[in-house]
Write a protein that binds this DNA or RNA. Structure first.
Lengths: 141, 141
DNA sequence: AATAGAAATGAGAATCTTGATCATCGAGCC
DNA sequence: GGCTCGATGATCAAGATTCTCATTTCTATT
């Protein structure tokens, strides 16, 4: 991610924006809440307000730099817009988020929409389940 | 919907609960916000608090009597759990909600989850588009 | 039908997430 | 270096939902 992306979006290159981009790029999880980003900023000694984090993320979303997901739970999560579109699987136990893309599902969605007389513009698909990560605190032993 | 459904769920049969069930059953749209239900209660002269509406809906959800959807927009909508599972298409313009069920999508979801080592428990799929309802206030003339 | 015990309710306060306000500050251009 | 406007931070505000707690109402039992 380059500062040129910010300029292209008509946004000034400021310290808060660069720091937030940095966190989004370097995060392990790739899916962060505004609060999580805010806490990371504080931890690294940056004095950036929570309002700025929300504002910047909203601008990034409008500029197509990040996308916002509403998973279960009340906080939205943000991820860098890297490759193309994809959907998500979330582990009910550990909260891990994985991404997937399935051409068949995409096609069927368009077909279903057509059958209902809709021209589809967007969709939200999230699968919830239990993952098989050994580190995942599965309830079922 | 019977009062026996309430009893089975371990819930006392009370006036607020019955009135709320009634509204869910008789509503045209089938998808109502807590606020909308609250307003209908007021309109029909019932003195039921908004907190009760939320509480009851949450209990109904836990009992499997209704399900809660988070469409775009900040308010959740509730619908009676009638037949089986289905997903939703929402019109971006008029907000109309339609239901659909597609076996192919369901199967692919299970398959995708399996490939990622998840045992899928649930999913949320919402398609957004523009509907072809003549009453729909489409922006494109 | 009266009653005790538990559960449900209503009103308002509280919470949580997010967006708005406004004075101050800093980036980008001369 | 200085100017102009966008950006920031702190605080406040809004909207949705839940919590608290005193009061009411079911339900089972007498």
């Amino acid at each position: 991610m380059e500062t040129s992306d910010l300029k292209k979006a008509g946004l000034k290159v400021t310290l808060p924006r660069m720091k937030i981009l940095e966190i989004l790029e370097n995060s392990e999880t790739r899916h962060l809440t505004a609060e999580a980003i805010y806490r990371e900023l504080l931890d690294s000694g940056e004095e950036i307000g929570l309002a700025t984090v929300y504002r910047v993320l909203t601008q990034f979303e409008a500029a197509g730099l990040v996308c916002r997901l509403h998973l279960e739970g009340n906080q939205a999560v943000f991820e860098l817009e890297r490759g193309g579109h994809h959907d998500h699987i979330v582990c009910n136990q550990c909260g891990r988020v994985e991404e997937f893309f399935d051409e068949t599902i995409e096609n069927r969605q368009r077909e279903v929409a057509r059958q209902h007389g809709f021209s589809i513009k967007d969709h939200a698909l999230v699968l919830y389940g239990d993952c098989s990560d050994s580190a995942c605190p599965h309830r079922p032993v």
